[in-house]
Design a binder for these strands. Sequence first.
DNA 1: CTCGATTTGATACATTATATCATTTCTCAG
DNA 2: CTGAGAAATGATATAATGTATCAAATCGAG
Lengths: 138, 138
Amino acid sequence: MATKHQHDHAEDDLSANEVRVLEALRDSKEPMSAYAILDRVRPSGISHPPTVYRALAGLESLGMVHRLKSLSAFVACGHGRCGGRFAFAFCRQCQRVEEISLDDEHYDDLVKLVPKDIHLEQTTLEFAGLCSACQAAA
Amino acid sequence: MATKHQHDHAEDDLSANEVRVLEALRDSKEPMSAYAILDRVRPSGISHPPTVYRALAGLESLGMVHRLKSLSAFVACGHGRCGGRFAFAFCRQCQRVEEISLDDEHYDDLVKLVPKDIHLEQTTLEFAGLCSACQAAA
DNA sequence: CTCGATTTGATACATTATATCATTTCTCAG
DNA sequence: CTGAGAAATGATATAATGTATCAAATCGAG
Ligand SMILES: [Zn+2]
Ligand SMILES: [Zn+2]
Ligand SMILES: [Zn+2]
Ligand SMILES: [Zn+2]
C-alpha cells in the first residue's frame, strides 16, 4: 500500500493494486468474494490471492471498502469512504446490498451495549432478509 | 436432528450428535471453530465435518448455539437458549466473549434502520475490541 | 551509489464449509 | 408385522476462503 500522507483526501495515494481492486468492486455494485475479485482483476496483472487480500486490507482500513462478514464478501463503500458508523442490509436471495449510515444517536445507543471493560474497536451490524422482489417471486 | 415436537422445552429432543456438540461448546466456554469441535467430539464417534456442521445448524436454529461471524466460530448460548435479540462483544486478543441481551427498546431501534423493502430475518451485531486485561498486558 | 526497510510477487498451505452419494433408521399404510 | 418411502446420519471428496513465508523488486536516507 502506498504511503498515506498528510491530507488523506480521496483516492490519491492508493497503490496500483488498490485502485484495481476498488474499481472491480465499484463496477460490480454487488458484493464480491476475494476470489471473484481476483478473477476480475487477473487481466490487469494481479494473479495471487495475497495480493487481493492485501489491497482489500488497505482499502478497508481507509474505509473505502467494507467487508460483509455474513457473506464473506466485500463491497465498495456506498459513500466513497466512511468510518465505522455504518451497517448493511442485504437480501439472502438476490444479494442486493444496501449500506446504512448510522447517525450519532443510533451509534451512541449501540456503544452503550458494550461492556465497560472492553475497549471497542470495531462494530459489525448486518441485517439479512428477503427483499420485496424476492418475496414476490416466492 | 431429531423431531422437535409440541412443547419445545429445553434440550429434550436433541439428537445424540447435537447433544455431543452442545456439550463440547458448553465445556469450553470460549468460542470454538467447527474443526475444534470436531477434534473435541471425535472420541465420542463423530468423525466428519458435515456431521458437526449439521449439528451446529440444528442447534443454531433452536437458538442454543450462536455463530460469531467475525470469528467464524460458534458459542453456546449464554442463556441456554434465546431468539434473535442478542449481540456479542469479544476481545480480539484473548477471545473472551460476552453475550449481550437486547431489550425491546434497543432491538426496535435497530429494526428501524432496516429498509422498508427488506423483510428482516436475521440481525448480526458484534463488537470487537480489547478487554482491560489485554490492554494492560500491552 | 549502497544499505536497509518497505512493498509487492509468488508458492505453498491452512482453515472453513458444502455437495453428493451410500447407509441406516424411522414411519406408517396395508 | 412388514416392507416401501422418507428422513437422518455417515462417509468421501472437493470447493471456497484466508494466511504464512520467503524471494524479488522498489524506495529513501545517508
Ligand atoms: Zn461506507
Ligand atoms: Zn432479493
Ligand atoms: Zn443466546
Ligand atoms: Zn482480552
